[in-house]
Amino acid sequence: MTAAPPLVVADKLTKYFQLSGGRQIHAVDQVTLTVHEKEVVGLVGESGSGKSTLGKTLIGLHPRTSGTASYRGEALPQRYQPEDFRRWAKKTQMIFQDPYSSLNPRMTVGEIVGEGLKLHSTCSATEIRDRAGDWLKRVGLEPDHMSRYPHEFSGGQRQRIGIARALILEPEFVVCDEPISALDVSVQAQVVNLLDELKTSMGLTLLFIAHDLSMVRYVSDRMAVMYLGVIVEIGPASDVFFSPKHPYTEILVASNPEPDPLRERHRRSETIAGEIPSPVDVPAGCRFSGRCPRVMDVCRSVTPQLLPLADATDRQVACHLFAT
């Protein structure tokens, strides 16, 4: 994994949204992230932590405020122009969270799945139909579903349509933005297994955004934890899950209820007070300092950097407790 050149690199990637009165939402702030080829990086964090914005900014759906992003060493444009989308849509794609609102209700499934080819290839109409049909089969639907409309499908089936739509151009890097959050448990496993199969057969690299820690650990090679626009911890998924270092990760893991009554009953409650602060007025120093049970004086003034741990260099934590 380390020998291969990184597929996607974000360096001090920043995305602010402007509000009226010159105020800004600090959605993603100086995030540095490397994604290697054929790797699955899970991105977890609470709503408002900036994980979706990071994913969208990486593939050009939002222009960057500052910082750089590159793909196989080639710099990605700061703000995508139509020709940039034409070029990069073949390599980078996105699977959206909500299978209800992310499919155009007035287009047939065949049109939705085939649209990428229509825009980005020289395929004839018949070829597009054939390929769309093949892809529907590949994601577990029937080719004759092509003339139907999205409302005729269940949530799980729509998510399969969304996957076929994203993958028909055979991209290399796919941002999966909460692809299973809207689905029932039994259907989640179907979709996760489908993604896993496609990942293996197509050699995909995935950024898997979700808030379900157990599922992210299951799916990902590495896991990154975001809080209020910054990555506070990143490392091999199981290590981060089973021995979290950052106090926020610890609380996130401890808050994740598991389907095991005895364990849940005897687990001491580690709830933290308060809620994620507004990304408009971000706290000085460590962004978690206001809620952190182990806060020190330095945390309120100095922003901790994401640094490798002394005893495990494949793990990085942004916390003064681990400063060497």
Partner: peptide
Amino acid sequence: LDVTIQAQ
């Protein structure tokens, strides 16, 4: 709700 708020 988010997991930490869910726990609360």
